[in-house]
């Protein structure tokens, strides 16, 4: 008995030593970066941008692996089962905090416990836009318009449970209005419909909407961030414009399967922090209307938990459900 337990302990120590040694040399082989969305989406753009820069700093190739499906659940589940050696990382976004309310994840993964938070990368607010033909020029006017004819103002979203849907549902809840929710397959088609005037309002991600705003095809009423956006300085925040507590911000971060050696996480955090302030990344994010965000590991974990709680309430109150 004692001999066996000794053996187990020695083995454990040896294992810990080797993993610690391995962590020091990390990375010694290419790293897989799972993006749980198809190419072209915001997760993909952010993930690839960071991957290119990070791989230069780490001196190892970072292989971007798009594993889309079920709003990110498929790729996230895959990452949760990956070896805990730091050679599999996952790009997450607000969807990570929303999916547990939309899908039955029992027996698959726990959005908080199955992962070690590595670093939050950036955040980008949504923007409330209307077709220029709509009478309302401000958020208050639109609220009045919607109250006059409840369930008549057409609100296009990128699909049930999407960021565009969440932002609108939060607005409905806090402003006490009811739109006619018209879901689309993705943000592009939804925006086309609002530009064309078939629908009136959209809570689009700022990143995808600036071109349309600047060319006057869409009129911005308010941005969903805590403060005004640098690329639309004249547009008030929705909170300023009449819905005091409103905040809808998409964010992107990197996590690893739970149990990754702390040394690996530290190395990654150090390099990611450097990448975040590198000029090409700063420029790219600024152009897209996104802000660099830096948090400590516990802050990031707490932020994820608070986002989960916040959007869980919105999902329940609005009755959106995927299953």
């Amino acid at each position: 008995m004692t001999f066996r337990s000794l053996l187990v302990k020695t083995a454990g120590v040896l294992l810990a030593l080797t993993t610690a040694a391995a962590a020091q040399q990390y990375p010694t082989k290419p790293i897989r970066l799972i993006i749980p969305f198809p190419p072209g989406g915001s997760n993909d753009v952010v993930g690839r941008l960071i991957a290119t820069q990070l791989s230069e700093r780490l001196g190892q190739q970072i292989v971007v692996d798009n594993r889309s499906g079920a709003g990110g659940v498929v790729g996230t589940e895959l990452a949760s089962h990956a070896p805990k050696d730091g050679y599999t990382l996952l790009v997450i976004s607000i969807a990570h905090a929303v999916n547990p309310w939309l899908y039955d994840l029992k027996g698959r993964y726990d959005p908080l416990k199955s992962f070690t938070p590595v670093a939050i990368l950036a955040s980008g607010p949504n923007v409330m836009v209307v077709n220029p033909g709509v009478q309302a020029k401000t958020v208050k006017e639109l609220i009045a318009l919607a109250k006059k004819s409840p369930g008549k103002v057409g609100w296009a979203s990128a699909g049930v449970g999407s960021f565009q849907h969440l932002g609108g549902a939060l607005f409905e809840l806090q402003a006490g209005v009811k739109f006619l929710h018209v879901p689309f397959k993705g943000g592009g088609p939804a925006m086309i419909d609002v530009v064309a005037g078939h629908n009136q309002v959209m809570f689009s991600s700022l990143v995808q909407t600036t071109p349309q705003i600047q060319s006057g095809k869409l009129r911005p009423l308010g941005v969903g961030g805590k403060k005004r956006s640098a690329i639309l300085p004249d547009v008030p925040t929705i909170a300023e414009a009449g819905v005091p507590d409103y905040e809808a911000t998409n964010w992107w971060g990197i996590v690893a399967p739970a149990g990754v050696p702390q040394a690996v996480v530290d190395r990654l955090r150090k390099e990611i922090a450097a990448v975040q302030t590198a000029k090409p990344v700063l420029d790219a994010f600024a152009r897209e209307g996104a802000d660099i965000v830096q948090m400590t590991q516990p802050e990031f974990a707490a932020y994820m938990a608070s986002e989960m709680a916040k959007w869980g309430k919105v999902v329940k109150a609005s009755g959106m459900k995927v299953q």
Partner: peptide, 10 residues
């Protein structure tokens, strides 16, 4: 394309 040639080797 992002595939491992043989498990563990890229």
């Amino acid at each position: 394309l992002p595939y491992e040639l043989i498990a563990g080797i890229w």
